[in-house]
């Protein structure tokens, strides 16, 4: 047993050292360390909401690219939607002495004490995509999508789709996220405006279900919606994973031609689905721009320039016609991404 535990510890130390290596930092000590001391301007710590949704991976990759271009390192950790994990990660960033912290707050309120703690240690905090809503601690700048306008775009696409016929619509929601609440609010505003002036082609919202923003839960929610309302005409899903889950649900009951899906995000998987006609259209977000802009604001902040409190990147509608000419989607492009 003693031998076994020794072997285990040895294996663990290799695993840790090895993983450090693969990130290409810190481990080749000595020579590189001396160089690093001159070269690296500091480290930026990023705690993502979750890395199981590719959207945040794109933000992370673009932040890393932009940061390294300007001589900063980026550490990426994933809070997996747990606010305590995220608070612990912020604590570790402070111990490491990072230059700046970027968060996708797991909760718009409860992350406050962690932000205040970073402030107290003199580390500026930035958020992107998801916004911090509390009043404890200070966020220098938030970079996100114009979710409310994006929701309005989705609403306009829905009105265009169903004008003249009307029909029943289900919303696959993720109410915990403020960003998704804004999307649905914008969507409903346009749909309600249509209904007040419509003549017999009313769009009826028959169900608003929680799809968790994920494929499996979106599948279940859509399946329930179609069971309860067999004559459903369309679905609005607040992101691509739950939209694709809804599509699988429709295919499983052979209703994919009857029910049209409008989703949100414009992730690669979503764009492919739009090209293949599985989703009608997306108001797309630009996670690459969100990531790069976040790092730009950090650099500006260190450069002594004034940084705006909030930067919102507008969303655009993306149809099959856009997908057909999207260079990201031609065969080689996909191979490269995958």
């Amino acid at each position: 047993m003693v031998r076994l535990s020794a072997a285990f510890l040895l294996a663990l130390s290799f695993a840790v050292a090895g993983c450090g290596d693969s990130n290409g930092k810190n481990t080749p000590q000595g020579a590189q360390k001396a160089k690093e001391a001159v070269k690296s301007k500091g480290t930026i710590g990023y705690s993502a909401l979750t890395l199981t949704n590719p959207f945040f991976k794109v933000i992370a990759d673009n932040m890393k690219f932009e940061a390294e271009k300007h001589g900063y390192d980026l550490i990426v950790v994933s809070a997996e939607r747990d606010v305590k994990t995220q608070a612990d990660q912020v604590n570790e960033f402070i111990v490491k002495g990072v230059a700046a912290i970027v968060l996708n707050p797991c909760d718009p309120q409860s992350i406050g004490p962690a932000i205040a703690k970073a402030n107290k240690a003199g580390i500026p905090v930035f958020t992107n995509d998801l916004k911090y809503d509390g009043n404890e601690g200070e966020v220098v700048c938030h970079v996100g999508t114009e979710n409310y306008n994006g929701g309005r775009l989705a609403g306009e696409a829905m009105v265009k789709l169903l004008s003249g016929t009307g029909g029943k619509v289900a919303i696959i929601h993720f109410p915990q996220a403020e960003s998704c609440q804004l999307r649905v609010k914008g969507f409903l505003e346009i749909v309600n405006a249509h209904n007040t002036r419509s003549q017999g082609d009313k769009i009826e919202i028959v169900a608003t279900l929680d799809g968790g923003g994920a494929r499996d839960e979106g599948f279940k929610a859509a399946k329930d919606a179609i069971e309860a309302h067999p004559d459903l005409a369309a679905i609005f899903a607040i992101n691509d994973p739950s939209g694709l889950g809804a599509r699988s649900a429709l295919e499983s009951v052979s209703k994919q031609d009857q029910v049209t899906i409008i989703a949100f995000d414009g992730q690669l998987i979503g764009k492919q689905a739009i090209r293949d006609g599985k989703i009608l259209c997306d108001p797309i977000q630009f996670p690459d721009r969100i990531g790069r802009s976040t790092v730009e604001q950090i650099l500006k902040h260190f450069n002594g320039d004034e940084v705006p409190r909030e930067i919102l990147i507008p969303s655009e509608l993306y149809y099959k016609a856009d997908a057909d000419k999207d260079p990201e989607l031609n065969e080689t492009g996909i191979d490269k991404k995958l």
Binding site: F8, L12, V16, C19, G20, N23, V76, E92
Partner: peptide, 26 residues
Amino acid sequence: GMNLKDVDPFNQKIVLGAVLMLAVLF
């Protein structure tokens, strides 16, 4: 320790799973 060493979050899960497995083995 893994966080301080910047170990990739996915690899962290693998290591923690292995630790649990070894504990049950013990």
